[in-house]
């Protein structure tokens, strides 16, 4: 293999409000082994066109910012190597099923609205139990495994762009929010199933998942949203049949001794770097 090859990055350019419709722009990018799609985009910005817009941050598959359609398949630009997906031409477009902000930047607000609707946080009957620093909760490794996989979600939106149900319209909350809901429903510390149920079983809820499995196939973190949604559906059915076991929330491990109540840890004030 040659050290450097030129791969044409065919990028969708579009600025809503200014452009009538999206157009494709070609950029020749010198690619070497190990180079990621994100590296290629940075090269375009530095050498060919500084106006190209996309979103990125961590560069290592942690933040979920650089989700985009890479040769028609949703994925992260930072953990996709160019040579794994293209030799001559690489097509890049914004994540499907979302409005476009500009070029490769998708507007993910619909996803986060659905996420919020499903109450993605621990819900407890005993409010004192979740006060910061109030107590610890016991959790066995088996209990942890019931939701750990689903907690790896980085909210990149790849599953939402891959979902065939979402391709049709806005009538489905989507794999990411539903996975987040199940992540908490499956958590032994949580008691929020009834609170999440209206959205989970609602008109845009889990019943619109038909197990096409695309979300699981494209997830860059191995979260397996298809499994989470199926398990959420099972919970709903068992709940309907009154067969769902009501989990008593675990008691706090220990009350801190009197006088040693720890104050919540406060984050240090943010200071901009001098350089």
């Amino acid at each position: 293999m040659k050290d450097r090859e030129t791969v044409t990055f065919r990028v969708q350019r579009y600025e809503p409000g200014r452009d009538a419709k999206p157009v494709w722009a070609d950029f020749p990018v010198a690619v070497q082994a190990g180079m990621t799609v994100l590296d290629g985009l940075l090269q375009i910005r530095q050498q060919l066109d500084a106006t190209l817009a996309w979103r990125f941050s961590c560069r290592m598959g942690l933040c979920g910012s650089c989700g985009m359609m890479i040769n028609g398949k949703p994925g992260l630009a930072c953990n996709t190597q160019v040579h794994d997906v293209a030799r001559k031409t690489l097509r890049l477009a914004p994540l499907a099923n979302f409005p476009v902000v500009r070029d490769l930047v998708a507007d993910l607000r619909t996803m986060f609205a659905a996420h919020a609707e499903l109450k993605p946080f621990l819900v407890r009957d005993d409010k004192a139990g979740i006060e910061p620093g109030a107590a610890e909760f016991l959790q066995s490794p088996e209990e942890l495994l019931k939701f750990l996989q689903f907690s790896y979600c980085i909210k990149c939106g790849a599953c939402m762009a891959a979902c065939p149900t979402m391709a049709l319209g806005a009538g489905f909350l989507g794999p990411m929010p539903l996975t987040a809901a199940h992540r908490y429903n499956a958590d032994s510390r949580d008691q929020g199933f009834a609170l999440r149920k209206p959205a989970l079983a609602g008109p845009r809820g889990a019943h619109h998942c038909h197990y096409a499995g695309e979300c699981t196939r494209v997830c860059p973190k191995g979260v397996d949203p298809a499994r989470a949604v199926q398990l959420a559906r099972r919970d709903l059915l068992l709940d309907l049949l009154r067969l769902k076991r009501r989990r008593p929330a675990p008691a706090p491990v220990a009350e801190p001794p009197a006088g040693e109540h720890k104050a919540p840890i406060e984050a240090p004030p943010f200071t901009a770097r001098a350089d």
């Binding site: 009834a194 609170l195 149920k197 079983a201 609602g202 019943h207 709903l236 059915l237 709940d239």
Partner: peptide
């Protein structure tokens, strides 16, 4: 808390 079954299910 609402534990009733919903129409969707």
């Amino acid at each position: 808390m609402n534990t009733g079954n919903l129409r969707g299910t």
